[in-house]
């Protein structure tokens, strides 16, 4: 493991991509960023621009309007980057699966754009902040 990977694992800057979620996952993500959970301990910081991001926190399902924006955001992110699919919706579609406005799953869309994309799933409807931290830390330890 080189210095690059070691540094990357200690410093994850996240960008929040809300792909038409029901808003519940976003609220939990905002909870996660509050002082109570203090993710800065692990070097996780919220940034405002995908160009700075190392991780995309994707919530919700990709409908027809959101799909091109999601692809654009993924392209704008500086590689190497990790995609965290937060919540059951983004992980596999949840109860919107097979719905008329949800043609594809988010991981399919990202894989199509970049076959080597690193995609990690944190299911739950919505996942609790503790679950998110556990998921992110677990994911980073196998990276």
């Amino acid at each position: 493991m080189g210095l690059k990977t070691a540094a990357l694992k200690k410093s994850i800057w996240v960008f929040h991509v809300a792909c038409s979620p029901c808003n519940n996952c976003d609220i939990e993500i905002l909870d996660l960023l509050t002082p109570r959970f203090d993710v800065e301990r692990f070097g996780i910081t919220l940034v405002g621009s995908p160009r700075h991001a190392d991780a995309l926190l994707i919530t919700g399902v990709a409908n027809r309007h959101v799909t091109p924006r999601l692809i654009q955001t993924y392209r704008a992110t500086a590689k190497p980057c990790v995609c965290f699919l937060f919540g059951a919706c983004s992980s596999y579609g949840n109860f919107f699966r097979g719905s008329y406005n949800v043609p594809r799953r988010i991981d399919e869309i990202i894989r199509e754009e970049d076959p080597n994309a690193i995609i990690l799933y944190i299911p739950g409807c919505p996942p609790k902040p503790e679950a998110m931290i556990a998921g992110v830390v677990k994911a980073l330890s196998i990276l």
Binding site: L3, K4, A6, A7, L8, K10, S11, W13, P35, R36, D38, E40, R41, G43, R51, D54, A76, A78, K79, P80
Partner: peptide
């Protein structure tokens, strides 16, 4: 009233950015 980052945080941020793609 939280713990805050470890002492090497800024160094980690810097080396990580050095290793990333410039768009």
């Amino acid at each position: 009233y939280r713990v805050g980052p470890p002492w090497f945080q800024s160094f980690a941020d810097f080396f990580k950015l050095m290793g990333k793609e410039v768009i």
